[in-house]
Simulated assay, not measured.
Amino acid sequence: MNTPALVKSLKEMLLKANAHVTFGDAVQSLPANLRGEVPAKMPYSIWQLVEHIRITQFDILDFSRNPDYKEIEWPKAYWPEETSPADDAAWKHSVTQVDKDLHTFIGLLEAPGVDLFSPFPWGNGQHLFREAVLLLDHTSYHTGEIVALRRALGAWH
C-alpha cells in the first residue's frame, strides 16, 4: 500500500537520527588527521567507510532509477583501497555527495504516482521500498562503525 504516511516515514528514517546518529553527525568535526587512521585490529579507516557509504548509496540510487543499470564488482568496486582521502576537497566531495545522492533518492520516493512496491522491470523483483530499506540499513550500519572508530581514536564526544 502506497500512502503519504509510508513515504513520510521512510524519508524521516533516512534523514533523521531516530535511534542512531545520522551520517552527517558521525562525520561532523572529525579532525582531518584522523580520516585515514586505521585503529588497531580494525580493517579500515573512517575515510574508507565514508567512501563505501557513498559508493554503495550511489549504486542503490542508480539501480533504483536506471533501466540500463550495470552491476559493479562486489566487493572490490565498493571499497576504496586508499585509507586516506587525497586531500580536504576529496573528503568534502564524498561527504557532500552522500547527502546529495540521499536527497535524489528521496526524490524517487516522493515522485508523483510512484508505486513503492512495483518491481522494477530490471533486476530480480526488487522495488523502491526494498531499496529504501536497504539504503537505510546499510548506511545506519556503517555510520555506527564510523562512531565506533571515532571512539577508538578518541574523537567522539
Rank of each mutant, 00 (worst) to 15 (best):
S9T: 04
E131F: 04
D101K: 08
N33Q: 15
H138K: 06
E71T: 05
L153A: 02
A40K: 09
L153Y: 03
R150K: 00
A155Q: 08
A132V: 12
H142D: 00
A155I: 02
L136C: 08
L135V: 10
R150M: 03
K41N: 11
D62G: 11
L61V: 14
N2W: 10
I106P: 01
H93T: 14
T56H: 05
Y78A: 01
Q48N: 05
H52P: 02
A5S: 10
D99C: 06
T83I: 07
L149N: 02
E81K: 14
D68H: 12
W122L: 05
L134A: 02
G107C: 08
Q126D: 13
F129G: 13
F120C: 09
A155G: 07
G36D: 04
H93E: 14
P112E: 07
K92G: 04
A90D: 00
G123P: 00
I106V: 09
Q97L: 12
A90S: 05
R150I: 05
K16R: 13
A155L: 03
A26E: 02
R54D: 00
M13W: 08
S64C: 12
L135M: 00
G125D: 13
G113M: 01
V50A: 14
P80K: 03
L14D: 07
E71L: 11
T56S: 09
P119G: 01
W122K: 11
E81A: 13
D62T: 11
L136W: 10
E71Y: 08
H52W: 04
Q126Y: 06
L153D: 07
H20F: 15
S118I: 12
E37L: 10
P67R: 08
E110M: 02
D101W: 05
N33Y: 09
A77T: 06
E51S: 06
A155N: 07
V21S: 15
P119T: 08
S64L: 07
K8T: 08
H138Q: 09
N124E: 13
K41S: 10
S84A: 02
D59Q: 15
H103R: 01
A86E: 09
D62I: 10
S9Y: 09
P43C: 04
K76N: 14
F105H: 00
G107F: 06
H103V: 03
A86C: 09
K92A: 15
W91N: 08
D62E: 14
G24C: 13
S9C: 02
T104S: 14
S94R: 06
L10W: 01
T139E: 01
L49C: 07
I53Q: 08
E81C: 00
D115I: 12
F117R: 15
F117V: 05
F117T: 14
F63E: 14
M13T: 06
D62M: 13
W47T: 06
D137I: 02
I55R: 07
A148Q: 12
Y44H: 03
D88N: 03
L149H: 04
S29A: 15
H127Y: 15
F63K: 13
I146D: 04
L30S: 00
E81P: 06
Y44A: 03
G107E: 05
D137W: 08
S140W: 05
F120P: 05
P31T: 12
L6I: 04
P121T: 09
L108R: 01
S84I: 04
D87Y: 10
P85H: 08
D68M: 12
R150Q: 03
L102S: 07
K70D: 01
S140H: 07
D101R: 11
V114P: 08
L30I: 15
W122M: 00
